[in-house]
Amino acid sequence: MSEPARQARDALAILAVLTVAWQGAYEYAGAVAVTPPLGTVAFAAHLLGSARFWEHAAATGLALADAFAIAAVLGVLGGLALGLWRYAADVTEPVLAALYAVPKITLYPVILLLFGLGLPAKVAFGVIHGVIPVTLLTLSAVRGIRPVLLRTARVLRLTPRETMRHVLAPAVLAEIVTGLRLCFSLTLLGVLIGEMFASQRGLGFLIINGINNHDVRMTTAVVLLVVVAAVLANALLLATDRTLHRG
């Protein structure tokens, strides 16, 4: 079986298991908690045709794009700088690791007071979720370059520029893409949580609003759409990741 065929088979298997679990949850808890798969898919399709849904999706998309861009740039540049500056890395790495362990939801009130309701708070919350893993992974990628590869660059008489471009960059790229993949899903998490607690717009708001209004159909359908979008985005990044990690 070819690699894409195997991946398609795996994806279908996971999909089947999830659908069964979902139907099971419905049988167990009933329509007050979730709506069953078929009805939800139908309603999700209906949602995709409504302008109101797309307004909320666009709000989430904008916040996510901003937060991901900020977290990715800060994380990659920070990680590169720390990786090349050993002393700073030795000091910063444990601090970052400790910060990452802080349950970030407890910081949300502070973020709200700092940025107010709306887009900036959502973006900030997304960034604090996503930035640390990508920083740490970039840092470890730079530190992890095997010295023999740099010696090989010298033996092959590469200029410093060529060494950067043809040895250093590809050596750290794969790790950085792994970092960005983590960064993406954590940033999405942060943005959605932000929308759930203090926002009037976005998919997170739609979910929490559905719960408040006992609109289970809405909640389940939006969750479904978010999950599908996140899984697709992750699959895309994972494919890139695999190509770069080769073998």
Binding site: V148, L149, V155, P170, A174, L244, R246, G247
Partner: peptide, 20 residues
């Protein structure tokens, strides 16, 4: 200071580029 043209070096460690 630099590796002269005409010299080739093979190291003990694996020095193949894993991304190629």
């Amino acid at each position: 200071g630099t590796v002269p043209d005409g010299i080739g070096v093979v190291f003990q460690e694996d020095a193949s580029f894993p991304w190629l």
